[in-house]
Simulated assay, not measured.
Amino acid sequence: MTRDDRTLLRAHVDGDPTAFAELVTRHRDRLWAVALRTTGHREEAADALQDALVAAHRKAATYRGEAAVTTWLHRIVVNACLDRIRRSRVRAADPLPDDLGEHPPPGAARADPAPGPEEAVLARETHDRVLAALATLPPEQRACLVLVDMEARPLAEVAEVLGVPVGTVKSRCARGRARLAALLGEDRPPGTVPPPPASHHRGGDPR
């Protein structure tokens, strides 16, 4: 019988030698995507994820069940990413990896598997511009957009992950989206309108 996340974490705390590995295997792809998109650097993401999983393994007994296990794990991963960004002072203008778009959020519509050549080129160019622009945002804004817009996480859950009020998440998303729109607009031909960054939650705090 498949054990749920809470059962696995509790079993790990109780000494089950396989429970934590099973939990990590279940969520590793999503946690890796969050780390990669937040740091924008493959090596930094790998190190941050490793730091986070070690911390989660050691701190499992502190989990009290107030939030979902996935929320708890995301909080540890995002904090590890932000810590590494601050410590290493990764240059904000470095482009994000080209494969970040290979992890669409749950329920997101997938692109036509066989687009025409022109559509494929335009989609790739837009994809690269968005990723490069995202990499210029302050880490806290980037983390909010990754979780809200790219991972389709509810605002309340993102607030729990980041340890800030929902209003702060909305404000950071609004500022980040506005900055992305401005950056994307700078590279487009005159008279064209830049596509808005994908968003699952509108009406952010305008501050």
Rank of each mutant, 00 (worst) to 15 (best):
T2K: 13
D4T: 06
T7M: 11
V13K: 01
V13M: 06
D14H: 12
P17W: 08
F20V: 04
F20W: 08
A21M: 07
E22W: 01
E22V: 09
L23P: 02
T25F: 02
R28K: 04
D29A: 15
R30W: 02
L31G: 06
W32I: 02
V34S: 06
G40R: 07
H41V: 09
R42G: 02
E43A: 12
A46E: 14
A46R: 15
D51G: 02
A60D: 11
R64L: 09
R64C: 00
R64P: 00
E66F: 05
A67W: 13
A67D: 14
A68D: 13
T70N: 04
T70E: 11
T71Y: 10
L73Q: 06
L73H: 08
R75W: 00
A80K: 02
C81Y: 05
I85C: 03
R86Y: 07
R86P: 01
R87C: 00
S88C: 09
V90P: 00
R91N: 12
A93Q: 05
P95G: 01
D98W: 03
L100E: 10
E102L: 14
P106N: 02
G107L: 12
G107V: 09
A108P: 01
A109I: 09
A111H: 10
A114H: 14
P115K: 03
G116H: 06
V121Q: 09
V121D: 11
L122D: 07
A123P: 01
R124Y: 07
E125H: 06
E125R: 12
T126G: 09
H127A: 14
R129N: 06
L131T: 05
L134A: 10
T136M: 10
E140Y: 07
E140D: 15
Q141A: 14
Q141R: 13
R142H: 13
R142C: 07
A143H: 04
L147C: 08
L147A: 09
V148Q: 04
A152S: 14
P154L: 12
A156R: 14
E157T: 15
A159E: 12
V164R: 11
V166R: 14
G167L: 09
G167Q: 13
T168V: 13
T168I: 03
T168G: 05
K170N: 02
S171D: 12
R172T: 01
G176A: 08
R177E: 03
A181Q: 13
A181M: 11
L184R: 15
G185L: 08
D187V: 15
P189H: 11
P190Q: 06
P190K: 12
T192H: 03
P194L: 10
P195A: 13
A198E: 11
G203N: 10
G204Y: 01
P206W: 05
R207N: 07
